[in-house]
Design a protein around this nucleic acid. Structure first.
Lengths: 117, 117
DNA sequence: CTAAACTACAACCGAATGGTTGTATATTGC
DNA sequence: GCAATATACAACCATTCGGTTGTAGTTTAG
């Protein structure tokens, strides 16, 4: 076995990247994320908007929190949920890296071809 | 239940976005993606580099293919795998949208605050 | 032609997911 | 103080996932 490219993206360990993309791979969670982008809402506020149990929504929020995409703040009996845009941009940067790598390789290929001319 | 934001991102249906992020949520698959960015490799070429069975790698490639992140081309008895950068950029654009939405909301909040001054 | 290589695919297994209900613990409102 | 609200968390269930082995179909090499 040869590990082909071990670069941990953005300084983020691979398991972190796993968790981030895994968290993004569910439409309910993406919806909660969008919702938490501008404002804070309690878990039950959020739960009220989805056709599933409170516990299910709570789990989705937990997945987002474990991925660092969302932070929870205690206020009395409720936990206010807010999206961390920094973390979203990290996910973006991982993809940026891939696209940049692709461009670099395409450019290198172009260079080789023009060199042959 | 109130669906909070049904915008299908980029014209992509939600299940497609699910599949893309799900496919990205595994380090082996991300590795295969990076590898397929500049060049083509057969499935067994790829499999040779990982410490798992051929069938396992084949499945990973299938997941990437189902997500549209990779295309396979038949050449004789082998299938050449190549990454589709277009698709990566789509995933990027989904995140772009979230970040843009966030900025818009922050700007709106700023506007309200300065208005109050 | 036959053997080897490349792929596809099914069946199986343990672990993780996405949902449920139920119970326990803080906090709040009256 | 007590009832209602908000959360946490465990237990359970069906399904999916990531891996395995095994079998079968093509294509290539000798």
């Amino acid at each position: 076995m040869v590990v082909y490219c071990t670069l941990p993206a953005d300084g983020l360990p691979e398991e972190e990247v796993d968790r981030i993309f895994r968290a993004l791979a569910d439409s309910t969670r993406r919806d909660i994320l969008r919702r938490g982008l501008g404002s804070e809402a309690s878990v039950s506020d959020i739960a009220r908007d989805y056709d599933m149990s409170f516990a299910a929504v709570q789990k989705h929020v937990a997945v987002l929190e474990a991925a660092g995409l969302v932070v929870k703040r205690a206020q009395g009996r409720q936990r206010l949920v807010r999206t961390d845009p920094e973390r979203l941009q990290r996910a973006q940067r991982v993809l940026d890296e891939y696209v940049a790598l692709w461009r670099a390789r395409v450019d290198r290929l172009d260079a080789l071809l023009t060199e042959d001319d």
